[in-house]
């Protein structure tokens, strides 16, 4: 399953719940305000690093760049463009869009 998160982790518990539900074999893609979670040295960095041990985490590059987060991305988080987004959707049987 591909999980997407589009809310800032500092405003919503969406990311927290998503990471609780993301099982090995699934992937997490951060989009829109969800990409604020990728930055180093934040209150949620540890959560993200722990999650990276079991599931791959991606962030949508145009959203990351638009928000000026591109030079602060945590090691291990992969940036994808729109084509990569489509590939991720195609690679997984189901998509869960956490709101």
């Amino acid at each position: 399953m591909l999980h997407t998160v589009n809310k800032s982790p500092f405003d919503h518990n969406t990311l927290e719940t998503c990471l609780k539900y993301a099982k090995p074999g699934s992937a997490v893609l951060l989009i829109e305000d969800g990409v604020y979670a990728v930055a180093k040295g934040t209150a949620v960095s540890k959560q993200l690093q722990d999650a990276l041990k079991t599931v791959p985490i991606y962030a949508l590059k145009p959203d990351v760049e638009a928000r000026g987060m591109q030079n602060r991305v945590l090691d291990g988080v992969k940036l994808v463009d729109y084509g990569g987004f489509v590939d991720l959707v195609a690679e997984h049987n189901t998509v869960q869009s956490w709101l």
Binding site: M1, Y21, G25, N93, T94, Q96, S97, W98, L99
Partner: peptide, 18 residues
């Protein structure tokens, strides 16, 4: 429990999130 729910979710064909 969340763990059981996560497994249940994994077994679905379509997930609609609200």
């Amino acid at each position: 429990g969340a763990q059981e729910m996560a497994e249940y979710m994994n077994g679905q064909d379509v997930i609609l999130s609200f």
